[in-house]
Structure formats: C-alpha cells, structure tokens
Design a protein around this nucleic acid. Structure first.
Lengths: 220, 220
DNA sequence: GCTCTTGTTGATCGCATGATCAATAGGAAG
DNA sequence: CTTCCTATTGATCATGCGATCAACAAGAGC
C-alpha cells in the first residue's frame, strides 16, 4: 500500500536528484520531443513536486539545452568510437554512412530537427546546437583528412566536404522521419553521392549490390 | 485621427476577410514561424477581434496546415516554372541546385523544418507535409527521368534519386539556418555529389570554377 | 428611411506553461 | 532523544493558448 502511493519523495543528495531529473528529461525528449520537457512533466516522471525541478535548474530553457547536449553528444561519441574499429578511412566512412542511415537513430534525428526550430527562441539551446554541430563536423573532417592522407580520397576542401556529408545525412534522416517509404537503398544512393564528392571510386564506399552494376554501365 | 485608431473593423465579404487572414498567417509564419500563428496574433495583424479569426477557421491546426501548404506549394510551382526556361535536363538540374542553394529561400526552409516537428502533433499539418513532399519529389523525378531519356544521366532508380536530391538540399539548407559559415561553395560540392549519384560527368552540372581544380590539385 | 441579414465584437471558460516562496518534514549530527 | 540543516512541498501568480457565444452594428435591400 504505502509502497505504491508515496506521499512524499525520499530525501536524496542534490547530485543524485539532479541526475534523476536529467534522466527524466532525457527520456521525455526522446519519447515526446524537447518541447515536452516542462516543469510538471519532468516532476511527474521523477515523482516529485514541480517546484523541485525548478529548484535544480536556473530555468527550463537551460534544462532543454542541457538535455539536447547530453543526448546528442552521447551519440557523437558512440559513433566516433564505432569508427575506431575499422582500419582504413574508406571503411570508416562507409561504416559512418551505414550507421547513420540504418534508421536506428531516428529518435535522435527528431531531437536535432526540433532543436533547429527551438533554437530560434532559446538562445542557450542555439549555442548547444552550434557546439554539437561543430563536434560532429570535427569527427567527419578528421575522417576525410585521413582519407586524403591515405590517398583514398581526392578533394581539396575537407572541412566543407565534412559539412556537406553531415547536411546530407541530416536531411535524409529528417525526411525519413516523415516518409521512410518510397526510397529504396537510401544508404546506397548516399554512398554514390559521397563517393562523387569525396573523389573515391564508384562502389568503393558501400557493398556492391546494385551499386556494382551502376559503375559498369557508366564506365563508358 | 479616426483613420489611425479604428474602433471597429470595416465589414467585408467573407472571401475577402478569409484572404486577409490567410495572408496575415502567411506573413507571421515566414517572419516568426508556424508556431506563432495564434488566434490573437493573427487577429492583431489583421486588425480584428480574435473571435473573428476563429470564426473563419474550424480550428487553428487547420490554419497552420493551410498556411504551410500555401507557402510551400507556391515555392514549388515557382521553381518548377523556372526550370522550364532551361533547355536540357542537365541544365535544368544545375539550375535547380543553384536556385535552391543560393540562400534566398531560407525562410521557407525554416517553415519546412518546423513543419516536420509540428506534424508530430498536428495531423492535418502532417498530411500537408507529406503531400507537399510528394509534389516536390514529382518535379525532381520528372527531371531525372528526362535526363535518362536524353542520355545525360545514368541511374536505374529515378524515384529514389529524386528523394535523395531533395533530402540533401533540405538538410544542407537546414544546416545553413543555424550555421552560415564554415562551408564554402555549398552549391559546388552538392553538384559533385549529385553528379556522382545521377551518373553525370564531373563538372557537368555546375560551372567549373574550383570544380575543375579539384582533381588536379589532389592528383599527386 | 427602415428592416433584417450577417459580419464582428470581446468577455469568458478551461487548460497549460514557467516561476516563486513560505511552510514542512526527513534524517544525519550531536 | 533532540537539534537543526536543507531537501521538498504545493499553493499561488502572471501569462498565454484555443474555443465559445450572446450581443452588437454595419450596410445592403427594399
């Protein structure tokens, strides 16, 4: 009885409570979007009075911005770590595209898209968005430069190419948010595009399949 | 005196008033975003009581959805008309990329991005988004198919390629919404990418410029 | 000039948001 | 067991939203 209906929340250390609040905000963001991060929403999920959530944050904009940063930076590091497992830049770029386009991270994509709009009225969030975009770009740029050094890629402008790759991936994923049907072989087509941009041989990025036939038919 | 402060709005025909409301909503959307389309906001801009706006719409979701459709469909038709002026599919595709990437339509891009998020909670808007995406895709697909027929493009899957091109453009434009700097020659890089995807020769889509030097400077 | 249709008003309701703060009580320290 | 710091409460305020509707008045038709 008393275990199901708790009258008053157990007293916890500030650090512990802050972590609970951050985790609740994270879950809400991934499930219902950043704009669902409200005082009462977060408080209810933690099982605490609304005033307590406010007590742990200067204002809600900060909690939204912090939640965005937490979710996105975790993804960046996760994918970056995944790349380490591949030997060559060519393989790494292939894995990057494959991973980002497999549809397993659409919840994070939704967060990105919402942040682009919300950043218009939440300056703290806007700053976080720029910061996280830079972090992503740095990862990809390093990858492209490694490819140039290894002689696998041929392009004169690694920073811009990195931005372009990210923009393409984001756009295609955002599209998948609304319409994931209609496009077959999303990864394959993107691979062709990136190959063209990066100056890699056709079909070198992603497994052959239809791609193999493309390059042959285009050889002339 | 009486001309500056108007106590009561002049009586107008329903069609005329509806047009005024639609136009006000359009201006608000382009300037402050779709979520700024509120009863009181629109009413204030028209110079009318809030109740009147409600009187002309079943609900606000419908006004938001309608405004989105109006803004976006106008752009689609505008760009499609622009393409007619070019002779070959290759030139048309080049002009398409050039036009969409010149930064003159970022306000419409912002509308798209916001609609992707808002569509999550506004079913009418979500339907409009899908509809408008299909319209865009149809334009591009027709273009790609024409290119294949003309022997300028070589790709086996025009529908998917059309989706990909749109996704890329949207993503890069959304990126530009937040970060202008960092990327030089957005159009040029995208042109390389699309050439790779569409199976067109390098540099055939957009004027040479740096594009010509890409392969040379990195040849060693 | 009068009538009557109908475009228009604005107060009102219910609900949601962020923020604030005096009051309360949990639980470690003594 | 008592004390006291502080984590926690929850009512409260100001604001904004969409929606509703009885009352009003503009102006076309007669």
């Amino acid at each position: 009885m008393s275990s199901t209906i708790q009258k008053r929340a157990a007293r916890k250390s500030p650090a512990e409570r802050a972590a609970e609040i951050a985790e609740a905000a994270r879950e809400i963001a991934l499930g219902q979007g950043l704009s669902a991060i409200t005082l009462r929403n977060v408080a209810a999920r933690v099982g605490v009075a609304s005033g307590l959530v406010a007590h742990y944050q200067p204002n809600m904009d900060a909690l939204v911005a912090g939640t965005f940063a937490a979710i996105v930076s975790e993804e960046t590091e996760e994918v970056a770590a995944l790349l380490e497992k591949r030997a060559t830049p060519l393989q790494q770029l292939g894995m990057l595209l494959e991973t980002l386009m497999d549809g397993s991270r659409l919840d994070v994509t939704a967060i990105w898209v919402e942040a682009w709009t919300l950043g218009r009225r939440n300056e703290a969030l806007a700053a976080c968005v720029r910061e996280q975009m830079d972090a992503w770009q740095a990862v990809v740029q390093r990858l492209v430069e490694a490819g140039i050094d290894a002689g696998e890629f041929e392009t004169f402008d690694a920073p811009s190419v990195a931005w372009q790759i990210l923009g393409m991936v984001d756009g295609l994923n955002a599209q998948a948010l609304v319409r994931w049907d209609g496009v077959s072989d999303r990864g394959t087509h993107l691979a062709r595009a990136v190959e063209g941009m990066v100056g890699a041989a056709r079909g070198s990025l992603l497994g052959v399949q239809q791609g193999g036939r493309i390059s042959r038919s285009n050889a002339g």
